[in-house]
Design a protein around this nucleic acid. Structure first.
Lengths: 145, 145
DNA sequence: ACAAAACACTTGCAATATGCAAGCACACAA
DNA sequence: TTGTGTGCTTGCATATTGCAAGTGTTTTGT
């Protein structure tokens, strides 16, 4: 919040998005949760970018505070913890997928299959719905224990 | 580049996007150019976020190196400089607009008019086309001098 | 012609954030 | 009871940032 009591983004939607996405590690954690089905501290730590433990703890707290993740005990093992995406995070999927399509177009060493951009071009809503279904599948399986 | 000669994003489209967008200042400069018609150092400096001069110079160089901006003499005044968005930057517009729609939905103090989200919901392609036309209008007027 | 202003940066330095390695508290397992 | 896995926290060296001031070049005004 600013001294006037207004939030840092001050009403600008781009700045609101920048507060969450305009940070490399938050952005990649969002990817891990929305696209790669990761939910635990250990899984995040294992990502190839190599986030360090203090930064990971800091960003998980930030994303929880921003209402993107919920922190819950792991149903499979009480001593462990899961971070689940909230509806707000899931609603970010279209933006994330749109960025992936753009990146796939301009990155000449992309690992994304050509079929990804093609399937998005053919049916954007369907492509996003597929990712949403994957997220729900992961979370429902996890919560069942 | 990594020691193996592969780029930092290493083929991951999200990481490719993160290299550009996963930085508050690059993200906001992209907004200024794509959405607010800003093209000069002075205009960027005047944004309410208050970027400092060294960071601005650093990020303009970065965005130029990444192929997002071109640096050209100002046709109105030879001593001044303009930064124009490349096609790559313009193609990022759908992602930026998608993020704005998301932010407008979740930011309860948004300054974005309700008509923005409504018009996007009604005609996404048309909304993006409108922004694209604005960019071209600004750039063509500028280059005419 | 000359002085002053504008412009796009650059530099120095203090404050903040990051990366790395180690340590810690707790739960569970053998 | 000894060890292992898990999710952190802490200390410290290094890197990045923000701020203020300065630099060199080009206009502008008189």
């Amino acid at each position: 919040m600013t001294s006037a009591g207004k939030p840092d983004w001050n009403g600008c939607p781009t700045r609101y998005a920048a507060a969450i996405v305009g940070d490399k590690w938050c952005f990649l954690l969002l990817r891990d949760v929305l696209l790669h089905g990761k939910r635990t501290y250990r899984e995040f730590l294992a990502s190839p970018e190599g986030i360090s433990t203090n930064i990971l703890a800091n960003r998980l707290a930030k994303l929880e505070a921003l209402g993107m993740f919920t922190r819950e005990p792991d149903p499979r093992k009480a001593s462990s913890v899961c971070y689940f995406p909230t509806q707000k995070a899931k609603d970010f999927l279209p933006a994330l997928v749109t960025m992936m399509v753009w990146a796939t177009q301009y990155d000449d060493v992309t690992e994304a299959p050509a079929s990804f951009a093609a399937s998005y071009a053919d049916d954007p809503a369907g492509t996003i719905a597929w990712y949403e279904a994957e997220i729900d599948r992961v979370d429902q399986a996890l919560r069942r224990g």
